[in-house]
């Protein structure tokens, strides 16, 4: 995240600390939104709404946090994410800490791979001039 536009990083930190009611100093690139910062499912929506407002962008449903995938029977069985689901997820979030997650790839643990850095990566890509 340190290679990215400091403006994006600064705004993301503010947004996350406000949405999750945590001190800004706790928000680091590697913080997991769920494990370290205590995010619940509605917090993911809150973060998306705030990002949309601050960066004046539209974030289509499931583009940042792929929640739709989790209700798809092809990808998830009995709380476990199937190989096809994992492939999809890894395509969507290439920079996550997959090694750790793959030890126990359940829906319950999925929140662990959503990190602050992942949001910055997503925004940097989305706001890059070629993608505008």
């Amino acid at each position: 995240m340190q290679n990215y536009n400091p403006e994006i990083v600064k705004n993301v930190k503010v947004i996350i600390s406000q949405a999750l009611k945590v001190d800004e100093s706790k928000v680091t690139p590697h913080s997991s939104l769920v494990k370290d910062l205590g995010a619940e499912s509605i917090d993911f929506l809150d973060i998306v709404f705030r990002l949309e407002k601050t960066f004046k962008i539209k974030i289509p449903k499931g583009e940042l946090f792929p929640e739709k995938l989790l209700t798809d029977a092809r990808f998830v069985k009995e709380g476990k994410i199937m190989p096809a689901g994992l492939e999809e997820l890894q395509k969507k979030i290439p920079d996550a800490d997959w090694a750790e997650f793959l030890k126990n790839p359940t829906i319950a643990n999925l929140g662990d791979i959503f990190t602050v850095g992942m949001i910055v990566d997503y925004l940097s890509e989305k706001l890059a001039p070629a993608n505008k």
Binding site: Q18, I42, L45, D46, F49, R50, K53
Partner: peptide, 8 residues
Amino acid sequence: SKQMVTQG
């Protein structure tokens, strides 16, 4: 509700 959520 979206507004209320983001305004805290």
